[in-house]
Amino acid sequence: MLTKRIIPCLDVKDGRVVKGVNFVNLRDAGDPVELAALYDREGADELVFLDISASVEGRATMVEVVRQTAGEITIPFTVGGGISSVDDMKRLLRAGADKIGINTAAVKNPQLISDGARRFGSQCIVVAIDAKYNPEMGEWEVYTHGGRTPSGIKALEWAREAERLGAGEILLTSMDADGTKDGFDIPLTRAVSESVSIPVIASGGAGKADDFYKVFTEGKADAGLAASIFHYKEISIDEVKRDLRAKGVEVR
């Protein structure tokens, strides 16, 4: 049977890894290619690069980071951030990325999901959803532009629509949990996992090994993603996996 996956996420700006706490404060945590190779050796099952460069030069740098990383690591990796066309996808896939994450562009133009899936296969297309609980909606709302813009769209509906259009996976970030280290957002993750039949990667809030156990069991996630706790060595991937194995969850 498939194992549950542990995925470190590297936020990359102009070729350097940074991590925002609640999407605002940035700290520099190193060279993306080196860090990717390190996570590969430490047992990461996949990697995600999120390109937060704002400039054309920054995005061009990302293609080079992808090319170098593909030559260094032996696990699959996803690249997301600022991808808004099939040509953008092609450039990154050619450089060696295995999957492409799309977020704001998919909300603006859902056909990008189906175009990408038809061209490269569903397994290449990861739809990233940033969601925040909206009491007036009585549900989670999708945010775009790196969590700055509320879209008015309900997260569960959007997840189902993304699957229908051909997404191969959902990368679900809870904006309420992100940066808190109090654990993943279990109600949100579970609700989305139960709404779709494609794999869901839970993101936001991981602080300790048991948080992964909870999101895989109670949250029904297929993979758990974290950034700062791995970057700042608060916990290792190996510790997370040992804890999961001890609790009967199959990991690599």
């Binding site: 049977m1 498939l2 194992t3 996956r5 569903s122 397994q123 191969g168 794999p199 690599r252």
Partner: peptide, 26 residues
């Protein structure tokens, strides 16, 4: 789920030069 995507464990069935000295894993 289709596609079968992710890490899954190998079971070896018979000796082969490509499997020699290796242990089953994901």
């Amino acid at each position: 789920k289709i596609p079968h995507m992710g890490w899954n464990r190998l079971t070896f069935h018979q000796p082969s030069p490509v499997l020699e000295g290796l242990e089953e894993g994901h």
